[in-house]
């Protein structure tokens, strides 16, 4: 008997893999899944800023783009190239500026960590190659075999 451990990102392919394994006569009781949860560094109180909140890396970029876009487009009515071009240019400048500020100053408490799914499959030695092949077609990140 041997045990195969494989690591995945959580996605639909995990479920496809489980279905595929069952179709290949691997029993459900021989498979176990573990969720490796992304760990958040610290938490101060319930209502404080949520460190897992992932959207905020682009918050300031979109906000600055709007502000710069409105002002740039308005002033553009007086400039030679007109409001469209100045609106676009100032929006892009605003977005980059906001993004850079967010990137350097707010990134510290937003370190993004990923969740993973670890699947352990218990099988006979002759099934190993088949399972490896199935895992490879489902975007496996890493795989190891433990002989026992």
């Amino acid at each position: 008997m041997s045990n195969i451990l494989c690591l995945f990102r959580p996605s639909l392919s995990v479920e496809l893999l489980l279905t595929e394994l069952q179709r290949n006569k691997i029993k459900k009781s021989d498979i176990s899944c573990f969720i490796l949860k992304a760990q958040t560094p610290f938490k101060n109180g319930l209502t404080d800023k949520d460190p897992t909140e992932t959207t905020s890396l682009a918050d300031l970029g979109f906000i600055f783009a709007t502000v710069f876009g409105v002002v740039g487009a308005s002033i553009g009515f007086r400039l030679t190239l007109g409001p469209i071009i100045w609106g676009i240019v100032s929006s892009i400048i605003g977005f980059l500026l906001g993004f850079i500020i967010d990137y350097f100053f707010t990134r510290a408490y937003k370190q993004k960590s990923h969740s993973f799914v670890l699947i352990s499959i218990c099988c006979r030695s002759e099934q190993e190659t088949l399972i490896k092949k199935i895992a490879e077609t489902h975007q496996v990140l890493g795989l190891t075999v433990i002989e026992s």
Partner: peptide
């Protein structure tokens, strides 16, 4: 981003419930 996060959490809940170590015999 939010929906992707939701997807991961839903998948984790499902895998834990249906495919967790307590549902199978684990021998490493």
């Amino acid at each position: 981003v939010e929906t992707n996060h939701l997807f991961e959490e839903e998948l984790s809940t499902y895998l834990y419930r249906e495919w967790g170590a307590n549902q199978s015999r684990l021998n490493i």
